[in-house]
Design a protein around this nucleic acid. Structure first.
Lengths: 142, 142
DNA sequence: CACGATTATATCGTGCACGATATATATGGC
DNA sequence: GCCATATATATCGTGCACGATATAATCGTG
């Protein structure tokens, strides 16, 4: 069996995920962020204590080989500080700097702007989000 | 407003799209293909006449700056031939080679394997695909 | 307490993906 | 026919994203 891209669920996801990143681009450009950087910062803004690289990786589904360079760029931008845990020198704790915290306020309008662009109402968005997330779970499990 | 990644529709899409590529990986590794290469080949397998780079780009949503190197890799693998259109030397026609056509048969089991991994029945898959595709359309439009 | 196994992060190589730009060809108005 | 403009593809630089591997620290078992 052979399908056209437009008939495939995988392609719908792939294409919609790219379109979503394009929708974010003008908003994030203004903040000097890429989309993956914004996702990592969102995890940090919500975190209680400074998480380890692996904690962030688990939450956002990225490997250290992706996260380490990304976090170094956030550090170079002055948004986070990376420091080895004194108790276990293998681990690196990621802390927001003042500038990193301040950026949360400057990004506060972003979710609303994106919500608008989806053209969905809140119930439909939540339903779709949960269906898509459940699919992701099943794919990662199986 | 600030949300955790897990609460965001965008993150569900981003994460599910990555999970989908991971689900494809073992199947495509056996064929020596990446996921974007598989999508481009799927478009070529279904095409009537040799499409131009821009035709493929429109169908799969990629720029020439992404497609040109990808097509060169497919050419290096012996799966496609790239040749300038005699009528308009600006355009490049992409034709499947024998090996490229033969690969279609060797990839015929892939959609079924992926369908299994989704854990969805066909009606649910089609419904989700169409919802996600419609969202992608709205995001690209607005 | 010594040493092999495990864990955490980092590095490397390949391949997307895009925006900006370059190059080459074609088109249209004069 | 000539030149400005438009179009098609290609190139370049940056930043993901992963698998494989390296490095360094800790743990467990004897």
């Amino acid at each position: 069996m052979t399908l056209r891209p437009a008939d495939m669920l995988c392609f719908a996801l792939y294409s919609a995920a790219q379109a979503m990143q394009q929708a974010y681009r003008p908003l994030l450009d203004a903040l000097g962020l890429t989309y993956p950087q914004y996702i990592v910062l969102s995890a940090l803004w919500a975190a209680e204590d400074p998480p380890r690289v692996s904690d962030i990786g688990r939450e956002v589904g990225l490997e250290s080989s992706t996260l380490t360079p990304l976090l170094k760029r956030l550090e170079a931008a002055g948004l986070v500080a990376r420091q080895r845990d004194a108790r276990d020198e293998r681990q690196v704790r990621i802390r927001l700097t003042e500038a990193g915290r301040a950026l949360q306020a400057r990004a506060a309008h972003v979710p609303g702007c994106i919500f608008e662009k989806t053209g969905l109402d809140e119930a439909a968005l939540v339903a779709l989000r949960d269906e898509v997330a459940a699919l992701g779970q099943r794919l990662r499990a199986g």
